[in-house]
Amino acid sequence: MSELWEVFIRPRRGLSHVHVGSLHAPDAQIALRNARDVYTRRQEGVSIWVVRAADITASSPDEKDAFFDPAADKVYRHPTFYKVPEGVAHL
């Protein structure tokens, strides 16, 4: 009946929303109010997102190697890969 919602909170301006936990509520408005009572009793946030858990598609830890491996052998994506000739500034 009551759906599961995941809760994300922006602790203050300048920071992004971070997942803090979940809760149950019949609709988005009540989920938001419940999130305020459960997760921000001590001014932990200035903005709340609630997302139906069922609407989140997640990558699976089982396939993590195959999924993330392509990034592992591309060291040239990092600036430290390149040799900078001595004396070159602002690079």
Binding site: M1, S2, A25, P26, D27, I30
Partner: peptide, 13 residues
Amino acid sequence: VREAAAAYATKHS
């Protein structure tokens, strides 16, 4: 309360 909230959610969805 749970039933009323669920009925309200259903009606509005």
